[in-house]
Design a protein around this nucleic acid. Structure first.
Length: 483
RNA sequence: GGCAGGAUAGCUCAGUUGGUUAGAGCGCAGGACUCAUAAGCCUGAGGUCCCGAGUUCAAAUCUCGGUCCUGCUACCA
């Protein structure tokens, strides 16, 4: 009954990008849908703030790592607000609560943690070791950071992930830990089947100071990835808080395809070691490319920040585009042209107009009196199934099927002709049916474009048309936006 | 190299266990209407279903071979 949904927590190393926006929006739909069904919901998002990269950047800027993290975290928070994300919590890994509880988790994992020295080639940019083969392939220079690999020997703590591979595999295979889409499930099973290796989970403090101290070892801090994953339960107040008992395991954890391994192998390993249940569903979205499916990159100059889109369009428009036109199970792309076409044809012409024409007819022919609205009658099974499978695109297609159906209904019934013929009973019946269909559509749209859905409902709910200011989605001219 | 997925209309894609004339949305062209945001509705054009062979009464669908693309993963010197 209780419903817990999370997004991954973005690393505050970079500005919020379109992929973060997508993830926030998708998770928000799940949260709002669950609330609509009357479930107690907890929806958390947040930011991941420790690690060497933050430390370095802060040093460059001459500020403290925490100041930098706070600044960046604020930007993610702002984007979430602008997108009308209904998160109940926003966790920062620098929150005292997270830091303290991370230490408790470490203690609880102790039977699976051991110390060992590790020698290998390391990239400070990636904060990761690479195999010799990889290093050779790249001529000893990390391609991501353009820095030579350093040969280092470190004392690290390790987590016995290898002990949990079989259990994780079983949970994925039997569906108790469901990974969608299925292609991602196969992908990770392929990795797990070959056996999971123990992972390094700490760094020497002298090398990376910006992190959560390892309990009882002042010389080590927790590896940022290991500690960041813990946010999903520290945010609930693991281990003692009521919320933790109430909301864990998560119903859905929303992540991007680039961090599948962390969430489908390491994280479940940690949970199993803690003797906690695994999340029910791990939903993996794809990437958003730029125009023509070309990857967004600074050097190509085709990067579009969520902020830029929000400067020109309302949150609902942005939400709609991302949910309907970025395939829920694959990669998609963003272009201003596509956004405007979508806006005009789907939101303005089809949805906005059907609301408008219905409201106007009731005002014109019946002084705004709606009369008895029949109950909703369209089958929503497909819509519901789509949502259960995190197929946001498909769910919206189902809604639009109804929007189109309604426009067709109006053309078939021709209320304006009925009005001329003076058959007021029949006219009232037809218009009330239109309202019924619109209200059902608004209901289905509530998790997706909440402001619009509420506005639509408000027009018809009182039995008398309550006009709104302007129109829902005024059409946009071809030259009204460029950038 | 291994594993997985893909190639269908100008674009994005759907095509369930093989079964008449291969579909939708967008875009494009034409039409009738007038309640509405010059929106909506109707009609139409547009396809060698990647290539080749095979199985079958029948293949977009199944088999084999090939080409190209994507993802994951491994490795050689």
């Amino acid at each position: 009954m209780n419903y817990f949904v999370t997004t991954s927590i973005p690393y505050v190393n970079g500005e919020p990008h379109i992929g973060h926006a997508l993830e926030f929006i998708q998770a928000d739909v799940l949260a709002r849908y669950a609330r609509q069904q009357g479930k107690p919901v907890l929806f958390s998002i947040g930011t991941d703030e420790h690690g060497g990269k933050i430390e370095e950047k802060a040093t460059e800027l001459g500020i403290t790592p925490l100041d930098l993290a706070s600044q960046m975290s604020g930007k993610f928070k702002l984007i979430a607000e602008q997108l009308n994300i209904s998160n109940d919590r926003f966790i920062r890994t620098t929150d005292k609560g997270h830091e303290q509880r991370a230490a408790l988790i470490w203690e609880a994992l102790k039977k699976d943690i051991y110390k060992s020295s590790y020698e290998g080639l390391y990239c400070t940019g990636c904060e990761a070791f690479v195999t010799e083969a990889t290093a050779k392939e790249n001529n000893n220079v990390c391609p991501n950071h353009n820095k030579p690999y350093e040969k280092i020997k470190e004392e690290n703590y390790f987590f016995k992930l290898s002990s949990y591979g079989a259990k994780i595999q079983k949970a994925i295979e039997d569906g108790s830990f469901k990974i969608v889409p299925a292609s991602r499930k196969h992908e990770i099973l392929n990795v797990i089947k070959d056996g999971l290796e123990d992972i390094s989970i700490s760094r020497p403090k002298e090398k990376i100071g910006w992190g959560i101290p390892v309990p009882e070892d002042k010389k080590q801090v927790m590896y940022v990835w290991f500690e960041a994953l813990m946010n999903y339960i520290t945010v609930l107040g693991y281990p003692e808080h009521e919320d933790f008992k109430k909301y864990w395991p998560a119903n859905v954890q929303v992540i991007g395809k680039d961090i599948l391994r962390f969430h489908a192998a390491i994280w479940p390993g940690m949970l199993l070691a803690l003797e906690l249940p695994l999340p029910k569903i791990l939903y993996v979205h794809g990437f958003v490319a730029g125009e023509g499916g070309v990857k967004m990159s600074k050097s190509l100059g085709n990067v579009v920040a969520p902020q830029e889109i929000l400067d020109q369009y309302t949150a609902d428009v942005v939400r709609y585009y991302f949910l309907r036109h970025i395939p829920s199970y694959g990669d998609g792309d963003f272009s201003w042209q596509k956004l405007r076409d979508t806006y005009n044809s789907e939101l303005a012409n089809e949805l906005g107009n059907v609301v408008q024409r219905t409201a106007v007819m009731i005002e014109k022919y019946q002084e705004g009196v709606i009369g008895v609205i029949p109950p909703a009658e369209h089958d929503v099974a497909e819509y519901e199934r789509a949502l259960e499978e995190c197929r946001f695109d498909k769910a919206l297609e189902e809604v639009w099927h109804q929007v189109r159906g309604l426009n067709k209904y109006i053309e078939d019934e021709k209320p304006w002709t009925i009005a001329k013929d003076g058959d007021s009973d029949h006219l009232r019946e037809v218009l009330a049916y239109q309202v019924s269909a619109i209200l059902q559509i608004a209901d289905m749209l509530l998790p997706f474009i909440p402001e619009t859905a509420e506005k639509i409902a408000s027009i018809f709910k009182e039995g008398l048309i309550q006009p709104i200011e302007g129109t829902l989605f005024p059409r946009m001219d071809a030259d009204s936006n460029t950038s």
